[in-house]
């Protein structure tokens, strides 16, 4: 069976580009705080969502709507409306993280398929079975804390599908369990759908290089001729003890394309690409590469090698937690 490619779309143009490039499935969100990529100028209005879904369906692709932030107390109606509107627009599933929202969707929209977002960080078979039994979740996006053998062990003990990230930005912390960003800036993935927001980034030219600060904290400083990666908090350079280093993670991004055969053997259903904030040409290129790779694996051919390295953030890729030594 061919692995399903689940591809990001931050705009209707990116959605169309991804469909044309061969994405089996697209995921996207509404243009508000209900989704975890709540960036200025991104995401879909209600009419755009319906049109995008119709475009995808006409070409045999599916569309998943991510409603994966944690609803704000006193404002849950915004998230409830997003679920209703996703169903009306014809979404193939919604991707949810919050328990209250899962319970709401199961009760009020029983016919709308539910996926568990990576933001719920369901990291073992007990909790996955619990979500399946309690909220009839059909697919779980696994957090980026698991090795490939652990993913295989989980799949052996559950009946629902699993989806794993294979390319793009890499959360170093368990997803949905991190408030580093709001500690420094007041805005977080869980509450606002943003991490290390650009509105709180300041660059300054200093004698020893270009400093990038987030909420006033220096995340890194680079020399004049060095590449300056975006100052994502957990990929900064800090001092701990007597060591100055990338304390949590290097400025790298996930590239697990070489692990596709192992992930297929581990029983994974779908491969997810991060990057709803990326351009449509990036999205199209990544989709084409991954589609070629999963088709090759399905037909027993060798993988096309190393095509995506230059698209990676900071020019370096990691396989992250999929290899146990990452820990």
């Amino acid at each position: 069976m061919t692995l399903e490619i689940v591809c990001p779309a931050g705009t209707p143009a990116a959605l169309r580009a991804a469909v044309k490039a061969g994405a089996h499935t697209i995921y996207c969100g509404f243009a508000d705080e209900t989704n975890a990529r709540n960036f200025p100028g991104l995401n879909f209005g209600r009419a755009e969502m319906a049109e995008g879904i119709a475009f995808a369906h006409a070409r045999g692709s599916k569309v998943l709507v991510a409603i994966n932030t944690y609803p704000r107390a006193g404002a849950e109606h915004l998230w409830h409306a997003a679920i209703a509107d996703a169903e009306t627009a014809g979404a193939d599933a919604v991707i949810l993280a919050d328990i209250g929202l899962l319970a709401f969707a199961a009760e009020h929209h029983p016919g709308l398929r539910r996926h568990l977002s990576v933001q719920a960080a369901a990291a073992n078979s007990d909790i996955i079975n619990f979500y399946a039994d309690t909220f009839d979740v059909k697919r779980v996006v696994l957090p980026r804390v698991l090795s490939v053998p652990e993913i295989a062990a989980i799949n052996a003990e559950i009946d629902v599908e699993t989806e794993v990230f294979v390319f793009g930005g890499l959360c170093v912390m368990a997803e949905g369990r991190c408030s580093l960003s709001s500690y420094a800036t007041g805005e977080s993935p869980n509450m606002n759908g943003v991490c290390s927001p650009a509105s709180h980034v300041k660059y300054s030219e200093e004698p020893d290089g270009l400093a990038a600060r987030l909420g006033g904290y220096t995340i890194h400083k680079v020399g004049r001729d060095e590449p300056a990666p975006y100052p994502t908090l957990c990929k900064g350079c800090f001092t701990a003890g007597d060591k100055t280093s990338h304390t949590f993670e290097d400025p790298t991004s996930l590239n697990a394309e070489q692990l596709i055969p192992q992930l297929a053997k581990a029983g994974v259903t779908a491969l997810k690409i991060e990057g709803r904030q990326r351009s449509r040409s990036y999205v199209a290129q990544v989709v084409r590469n991954f589609r070629a790779a999963v088709d090759a694996v399905a037909e027993g051919r060798p993988l096309p090698a190393g095509m995506l390295a230059r698209l990676s953030e900071g020019q370096s890729g990691t396989t992250g937690a999929y290899k146990k030594t990452w820990r």
């Binding site: 980026r144 912390m173 368990a174 369990r177 060591k243 304390t247 990452w326």
Partner: peptide
């Protein structure tokens, strides 16, 4: 603020 699969003390 955060929990991870990776141990930062070990990494250090």
């Amino acid at each position: 603020l955060a929990i991870s699969g990776r141990c930062y003390h070990a990494r250090l």
